[in-house]
Lab assay of single mutants.
Amino acid sequence: ETKSLTLVLHRDSGSLGFNIIGGRPSVDNHDGSSSEGIFVSKIVDSGPAAKEGGLQIHDRIIEVNGRDLSRATHDQAVEAFKTAKEPIVVQVLRR
Rank of each mutant, 00 (worst) to 15 (best):
E86S: 08
K3C: 10
I20A: 02
T73H: 05
E36F: 07
H74R: 14
I88Y: 04
I20Q: 01
V90L: 08
G37H: 04
I38H: 03
G17H: 04
V27P: 13
G17P: 06
E86L: 03
R11I: 03
V44C: 13
I62E: 02
E63H: 07
G22E: 14
K51V: 09
E36P: 09
I43P: 02
I62W: 04
T83A: 11
G14D: 14
D75Q: 14
A49K: 10
S41M: 02
H30C: 11
R95S: 13
A84L: 03
V89Q: 11
E36I: 08
I88W: 02
G22A: 15
R60G: 02
G53D: 13
D68R: 03
I43R: 02
S13L: 08
G47I: 06
G17F: 02
V89F: 07
A72M: 05
V92Q: 02
R67D: 05
S33D: 14
E52L: 10
R67H: 15
L5A: 04
V27H: 14
N19H: 12
A49V: 09
H10P: 07
G14R: 05
I43D: 02
D28H: 10
T6N: 04
E52S: 13
T83N: 15
G53S: 08
S15D: 14
S33V: 14
D59T: 00
V40A: 07
S41Y: 04
L69Y: 02
A72Q: 01
S34F: 11
E1S: 07
S70Y: 13
Q91R: 14
S26W: 09
L5P: 01
H58E: 06
K51G: 14
I61L: 05
D59V: 00
F18L: 03
T2S: 12
R60P: 01
D68N: 10
R60F: 01
G23F: 07
E86N: 08
D28L: 10
F39A: 03
G22I: 07
G32P: 15
G23L: 06
S35H: 10
K51M: 09
G22T: 11
S15C: 08
I38F: 03
R71A: 08
D12A: 13
A84H: 01
G37A: 03
S46E: 14
I38S: 01
L69T: 04
I61K: 00
V64F: 15
D59M: 02
D28Q: 10
L69W: 00
R71P: 00
R24S: 13
F39D: 03
T6E: 05
E86W: 04
E36W: 06
L7Y: 07
E86M: 04
G14A: 07
G22H: 15
T2I: 15
D75S: 13
L69G: 01
K42D: 15
I38M: 02
A49L: 09
D59C: 00
K51Y: 10
I20N: 00
N65S: 03
L7V: 15
S46Y: 10
P87G: 01
E52C: 11
P87C: 01
S34R: 11
G54D: 05
E52D: 12
I21H: 08
L5Q: 04
P87S: 01
V44A: 13
T6A: 09
L5E: 04
L7E: 01
S35F: 08
G22Q: 15
I57W: 03
I21D: 12
G23Y: 08
F39G: 00
I88D: 04
G14I: 06
P25N: 11
R95W: 05
R95E: 11
H10T: 14
